[in-house]
Amino acid sequence: MFSLANPKRFMDASGKVLPWLAVATAVLLTVGLTLALSVPPDYQQGDAVRIMFVHVPAAWVAMMAYGLMALAAAVGLIWRAPLADVAMKTAAPLGAVFTALGLVTGSLWGRPMWGAFWVWDGRLTSFLLLLFLYLGIMALGNAIEDETRAVRASGILAIVGAVNLPIIHFSVRWWTTLHQGESLLRKGGPSIAPVFLWPLAVMALAYTLLFFSLWIVRMRTTILERKAAVLRITGRA
């Protein structure tokens, strides 16, 4: 089959990489979570600070996933690469889940910090819009029957969203300046206590690897499903 020529090599390579990636993810998650639970409580936030270790990495992966999805969409549109189509299609639900995770942990963190589960804080609102964007991309992909056309259409939307996201973020920041500053990226080095920095870094890496593991599993599943569908239709692979 023409459309599977490219993914075939991916299946071989990813099959070899995936077990190692999964083990590394499990180890890093265990180490990261142990560290996160063993650091001393924050002098202001108390134990609530530990939510940061599951919140910040989720937010990071949510954004990284969008960037990767938009990149895959562009590659798929320009070079009509079937593998990029699969990558784009499977990244959207994963990104949405990490965005939702970021929102939920953010609001759990917000309860002791702000005294409410939800405030219309700049970053939370941006992330809510990001979630809607993810859901819109998935909804568009599901609403179009033709497989290739569905991926390409949601890919165009993903790229438009990628151009728009910085503007959305800027506009929401303009709209409210309620939030504490961006502590990790502030000028003059991180303002976060070094004792928290290490567990956070490990957890960020663990989440990143978790995303890639899940992404590869989903891509492999999608390719196999497609192969099965082709077999059913044509009787040959």
């Binding site: 089959m1 023409f2 459309s3 033709d146 497989e147 569908a229 082709v230 239709i233 044509t234």
Partner: peptide, 13 residues
């Protein structure tokens, strides 16, 4: 001039 044209729709040739 149509030259060795192949059309595949929904996995069907």
């Amino acid at each position: 001039d149509i030259d060795k044209l192949t059309c595949v729709r929904a996995h069907r040739v």
